[in-house]
Structure formats: C-alpha cells, structure tokens
Design a protein around this nucleic acid. Structure first.
Lengths: 203, 203
DNA sequence: AGATGTGAATGGGTTCACAGCA
DNA sequence: TGCTGTGAACCCATTCACATCT
C-alpha cells in the first residue's frame, strides 16, 4: 500500500511525543492533548490512528504505551542505520543533533573526500573517504543517506550512493536530483525555507 | 488574499533556478525545462505562473529575465533582514550557508545567551546577547527569525521574539510552539526528516 | 458529560485535455 | 508541430457531525 507522506510524518511526530510522555510517567492521553503537542487537530489524530491496532476509550483516551507499540508496529521500529555524506559545518551539526536525540535511528558513518575530514570521529560516528562508501554501506546495510555536499557534486554523489544500494536520500543541497523513481528523495533546502518564512512574515 | 504555502515554496524555487539560468546566459525557458530543474510538473508550473504578469509564448517559452521580474513583483524582492537565535553548531552552519548563497535575504544578526558566543562575527554577522534582541530587532526591522535553540527554551524564546515584533519563525527545535495564530511558524525538525526518509527507504 | 470512531461533506491542490497560437 | 493558458475533472486530505461508548 502507498501511504501518504504527510500522514507518516505526523505519525512519526506522535511517536516522539508519546515516548517523551511515557518517560515522564504519563499513562493515558486524549486526542486534544496530543494535538496541543504536535499541531495536528484532534480529528486528524483520531483519523490517523484509525488503522492502528489500538483504540482509545472515551473515558480514558489512548494508552500511551500501547499506542507507541502500535505505531512501531505500523511504521517499523528497527533502529535504522543511516550515513551522512559531507562533513562540513552542516553535516557535523546534523550528526551531533541526530545522534544526540533520536530514539529510532543512528548516523553510523560519515563520508567526505577531503583527507583532513576522514578517519575522524564525530558524535560517535567514524568518518571514511567517500570511495569506501559501497563497502561500508553493504557491511552496515545502509539504505538511507543524508546529503550535505556542495551543489556541484550532489547529483554525482547521489548516483554513486544509489548504485551502492541506497533507497532514500535526505537532500540538503539546493538542487533537484534526477534519480530512478523508485528512490525516495526528500529535499530540505534551507534557503528556500528561510525565504518562505520571510514571505509569510510579511503577508 | 491567502496564498497557498506549497505554491509560494515552488515559486521561490523557480526564482532561484531562474536567477542561475540568467547568470548562465539563458534567455528563454520552456515549462518542461523548468520542470526538470525543480521537480514540479510542467502543468503545475504553467498553473503557478498563470497569475504572474508575464506570459510565455508557445514558440519560445518564457523570457527568463521577465519571469524573474514578475516573480519578484509577485512575492516581493526586498532583501529581507533575518536574525538567528542559538549559535551552536547548527546555528553557525545555517548562517554560513544562507549568507553564502541566498540572493534574497541575509542573516544580519545572531543571538545567544552564552557569553563566549556573543560579540563575535560569524559569516559576516555580528552576535549579540539575547537580552538585546528587542533593541536590535527594532533598529533593523527584523520580522523573521531562525530558531536553533534547545527544546527546553524554544517556547520562551519564541514568545520573547514575537513580543519584540517578529512575525515569522523558522523553528528547528523539535517542539510544537504555541503562539498567537497571526505568527507564521514553519517547523523543520531534522530528526523527523531523517526518520521519514528512513521509513520511505524501506517502503 | 465528554471522548472516540467514522461515514459523509467539503475544500484545495493537481492533473487532464484541448483550444489557441507561433 | 509543439508549446502555452485554462476550464473541467479528478483525487486526496481535512473537517464536520453525530452515533456510540464509558
């Protein structure tokens, strides 16, 4: 089944806040409370949760623990092994950030082509020369990469990693990648993001 | 008129690639060419461009120069003054990145609360203590900020800056901000982004 | 009383398909 | 021939509204 991107993104957010709630000792939650924590509407949340194998009760809402389990069951809970390509400022920042906070995935390898960037450790993650990508990716079963490389090489690097078995790319380079359409690409161009917000600040 | 977020985002992307094309000496472009550069479909592009005050010709497509002018006219072309709050790794990376590449905006001031982070210069941008935000924001007419602060202070900082006149926030903290609903908030949580891509790599 | 679960209605964005044109 | 401009059709996501449950 082809699932909606928007919905998956929301469900991922529900899971994060539910995990926090569980840690904080909360056992139950109503859709309107989850709404306040995620900026989805209560109706949307109930709708998203419909095809989970847990249901809530009018009296006590949803059981946090069960809901987390259902979400894991729905979207998968394997601790995903991810690689990052490009260890400039942005790459290092993302690595620190993700490895410091995510429950559900880990950046396990970094890659670059500059000799002073390889064979280091950043946020508990070893860095390699890009030419070793295929070998490491196969060993680790890496199917997802974060691309934080300069625009001029982004297409080449994307082709290289997909040839090595990568199926999904989170692309921070402001360029449209052309890849086989069974590869999932998410663009997170930061400049567009700021320009967009600047536009709406004025309108 | 309330304009669609998606559409504005696409138009911002069209502008960026058009500026590049103009620099490269291209004078004309067809919708299918712009499509290859932006991952919008040709029909979508023609539709987006409908309410611009330029139209294309079947024989030569759109005139790049005119189209840029129309887009500027449509969404505004003032070089927007933006501030960034939180000068950790991510904040510094974004500042370098944006100030090195954007045509249409500039990060003109950075803010932090740690004494070792204030009174520095990052990417041509002076850093101040957060307590001076209101003063600087008023002087500079800052209406847009990028938030790269820890989760636990994000809500407080967001309230502080909106009190000082900010109208739009690009929020990198993985938390849902509660603000007056005439404030535009765009969430770009990086962990969700990676988790989403990891999900679709497997599906 | 106040919440969930959900069919039905709504609304908005995207794509189709084709007339008009160089 | 092959593109633009655009009404109409389509499709998908969100919201409404209410029966149901505790």
């Amino acid at each position: 089944m082809r699932r909606s991107e928007r919905k998956i993104e929301r469900i991922i957010n529900y899971r994060r806040v539910l995990i926090k709630l569980e840690r904080a000792g909360e056992t139950n939650i109503f859709s309107h409370q989850l709404s306040a924590l995620t900026n989805a509407t209560p109706a949307q949340i109930r709708r998203d949760l419909m095809e989970m194998d847990t249901s809530g009760s009018p009296a006590h809402g949803y059981v946090v623990k069960d809901l987390i389990k259902s979400i894991n069951n729905y979207i998968g809970a394997d601790k995903e092994q991810v690689a990052i390509i490009g260890l400039g400022n942005l790459g290092k920042a993302i690595t620190n950030y993700v490895n410091g906070s995510s429950e559900n995935l880990k950046i396990v390898a970094g890659f670059d082509i500059k000799s002073e960037k390889v064979n280091r450790v950043v946020a508990g993650c070893h860095s390699y020369h890009l030419q070793d990508f295929e070998k490491i990716a196969k060993e680790r079963g890496i199917k997802t990469v974060i691309l934080t490389v300069p625009v001029r090489v982004a297409q080449d690097v994307a082709e290289q990693v997909t040839k090595a078995g990568v199926r999904g790319i989170l692309n921070y380079a402001p360029v449209n990648l052309h890849l086989s359409d069974d590869i999932y690409v998410e663009n997170r161009d930061m400049i567009s993001a700021v320009e967009k917000v600047a536009y709406f600040s004025d309108h």
